[in-house]
Design a binder for these strands. Structure first.
Lengths: 207, 207
DNA sequence: TGCAATAGATAACAACTGTTATGCTACGGT
DNA sequence: ACCGTAGCATAACAGTTGTTATCTATTGCA
């Protein structure tokens, strides 16, 4: 059982060639967060979800905060890789940007889980500057991808030259974040297709 | 000290003519939430913020959850009354809708506090169906106001007849929510005026 | 004046939290 | 064969939590 796929996380400086049990711990933490809420996500609950004891968690993470930051980082990682895949697979068109932005919406259960965890952490970041800083870094990272995409579209003359990529990236991300939250609250006034249409409409307005 | 201004909250069915100490408790809870985070907002912390003991809280609220639901309801109350004021004061124009939507953005410190509390509760609602249901009701209430405004604008021929008020209300609220969260994370890529401009631009596109 | 309800203080309760130390087991290198 | 370390279990720790019961003071009403 010695799988050795490299894990390119930011915190994998420590000497670990194994698939890093920490990913399993973080995954268990995700599940508990979504099911029980962040306030009931104790080390014992995570360990129980993993089918182990708290020794596993304490052995692989210095603090609970370290675990939480790692779990939050996984959110960013998933979103960025999801977008990166689309950047490689699809042609450079406005529709590609739309597809990338749809990554943030809870289309399938996995996306829904990501969004839930993200919102839970965002709420927890209120009054916790360290966590808020992590969110800030995450947001900057995701924004950078969208800005790059907008610039590329601009260079390909798919959107107007007058468009400010930095500004519109923010607006677009704000829009998808808001739509995602609405869907999460189950306001249910907009279904998945209507949300996609709203994004597409805004992107097309940049033409 | 027998102030008797009526309080039109949803939970004020109980026989209390006083200004209801519960509002002060909720205000104290807000302050603790913003400063310390929702996880450190214990009954003792709230009481200490209020300059009293926990007896005050336990006397006026059945549970901690009752207090939390009350505090969350205050968020909705503030936002709706803020919009209602604008509806009375200003002329019926598209700019009035913009002004109403700006209510959700952290323009001053009070708005910032409201937004922070709202986000904290939203994160806490993950894994807590009862709280999530409260959010759902709140969102529905706010959306109804925006829908009404859109319909009125449509009747006044300020926006296109083809526009679907229900859909656009959702998109607009999603946009302001997202922009507010961005500002909260202090992504700081968009200043207050740029955010307002983004909203105004979308509203004008409905013309 | 006297009774009853309200407002609040205080303290004790059990449950749960993150952290830490310690013990056990299995494997990898020498 | 030996030893050190990684991986994990276990248990104890002190602190904090919401809840509850009990007690005191004040106020409104008859």
């Amino acid at each position: 059982m010695l799988r050795c796929q490299g894990s390119e996380s930011e915190a994998s400086i420590c000497p670990m060639s194994q698939p890093d049990r920490r990913y399993e711990v973080a995954a268990a933490a995700w599940r508990v967060i979504v099911r029980e809420g962040l306030d009931r996500t104790s080390l014992r609950a995570i360990a129980h979800e993993l089918g182990c004891t708290t020794g596993v968690v304490t052995h692989h993470f210095r603090d609970k905060q370290a675990l939480m930051l790692f779990a939050l980082d996984q959110v960013t990682q998933r979103l960025t890789t999801g977008m990166a895949v689309l950047q490689r697979e699809k042609m450079l068109e406005r529709e590609r940007l739309v597809a990338m932005l749809l990554t943030f919406l809870p289309q399938d259960t996995e996306r829904q889980e990501i969004l839930r965890v993200w919102v839970a952490f965002l709420g927890h970041a209120i009054g916790h500057p360290a966590l808020m800083a992590a969110h800030q870094r995450s947001a900057a990272q995701l924004r950078a991808v969208v800005i790059d995409e907008l610039r590329a579209l601009q260079q390909a003359q798919q959107i107007r030259p007058a468009v400010n990529p930095a500004v519109e990236a923010n607006v677009l991300l704000a829009l998808v974040n808001g739509l995602g939250i609405d869907a999460l609250i189950q306001a249910q006034c907009l279904d998945s297709q209507q949300q996609a249409q709203a994004i597409r409409q805004y992107v097309e307005s940049l033409r």
